[in-house]
Design a protein around this nucleic acid. Structure first.
Lengths: 204, 204
DNA sequence: TTGATATGTTGACAGTGTCAAGATAGGTTT
DNA sequence: AAACCTATCTTGACACTGTCAACATATCAA
């Protein structure tokens, strides 16, 4: 059929490839993933994967897409979780976002790195998934603005863009190995929260 | 001699390689640079460059180092330039930093990308150069704190780290092709400045 | 002149992504 | 049941990559 591959020769190569690729990337990064090695780990010949993914790029897009879906779900969960003040929820999100990004460095890099967005061509469905994730973020930003957590001197889009850019930048510095001191991270996260929130400098 | 290569066979291969490589990278990015093509453009055989650079990595490090030196000089120039209020100077720097990063995307990526810092091993002298550039930044941050442009609720190091991370994040989003709308950039830069500066919310 | 050393060359090896041509196995149609 | 189509997998091949080893030569010092 179309969607569900039955036991042809391998079983379910599509899924096996995605799983193996995901693991290799988590361990060695995108640079460590080669189609040939991947095929070898799964136990098929070099070109077998090309019957399931047009390209190496297509495989990576599919992988990244899964990451975006997970992140979108996490964002939605946060919005519904109404217990606790918004400020603390936001602070918790910042911590979570960065911890998560750093714990899964390589996946984060796959999702937001130039391998997919610049060098390769992002898939149509990958674009959709990432835009949806971003929309979830913007929606939450709007709420945070109403709760006076984030500044209201601009549209939710702009505030969402710049605040996210800040988080992204911090994440990248650690992920790319420019900053390495994990001990700095905690303090930087807290400073970043102060920088982003309205309550940054309490007016009297 | 040691430093100045005279007219041996080629003339000055070291410099020629750096120039050609720099140009290729500006045009096609790091991914578009291959040692073989580079040697070909310069007009030598494939392995000739290896007598001037131990590695492809070493060549890239040398290239990035030049970038850091330029940036450090620009930072120093800003600090001595005392005309105009500090706030406006800082705003101008933010604009310049991002415009420059985006205009020379590929060089920026070389300097701060994972190609050098994560995948490859950054040179000893590259580390020195980048640290020096960063120190220039921190020194200026200290001044900006005293001028009440940047917040003083933390050390110059921390403030410097987080503010720079924000700029870096914004730069990366455009460089990596995640954001493409140049028209958004102007507004995002201005919002970012507001986010970073103390005057963000004027206290009455 | 005699070396030493810096610089350049060709040949080779292992690795990469991916196309083309052929084999086979599964499901569908007659 | 036989015939056929198509999804899947295979081997072979090509052009590309970084870089090592061995060899050639040009330049400078003794």
């Amino acid at each position: 059929m179309n969607t569900s591959k039955k036991n042809y020769h391998h079983g379910d190569l599509t899924a096996s490839l995605l799983n193996a690729a995901s693991q290799i990337i988590e361990e060695q990064g995108v640079e460590g993933l080669s189609m040939r090695k991947l095929a070898d780990t799964v136990g098929v010949s070099r070109t077998a994967p090309y019957h399931h993914f047009k390209d190496k790029n297509a495989l990576l897009c599919a992988l990244a897409e899964k990451g975006f879906q997970q992140q979108a779900q996490r964002l939605l969960a946060l919005r519904t979780q109404k217990e606790g003040a918004s400020v603390q929820l936001f602070a918790a999100y910042v911590h979570q976002y960065l911890d998560d990004a750093i714990q899964h460095k390589e996946t984060y890099d796959l999702m937001y790195g130039r391998t997919l967005w610049k060098t390769g061509k992002p898939n149509a469905s990958l674009k959709v998934a990432s835009k949806h994730t971003f929309k979830c973020w913007i929606d939450w930003v709007e709420v945070l603005q109403k709760d006076s957590v984030l500044p209201s001197d601009n549209t939710p889009l702009r505030i969402g863009q710049t605040t996210w850019a800040s988080l992204h930048g911090l994440a990248r510095l650690f992920i790319d190995g420019i900053y390495l001191d994990q001990s700095d991270l905690t303090q930087m996260k807290e400073q970043m929260i102060r920088q982003l929130c309205v309550s940054h400098l309490p007016c009297t």
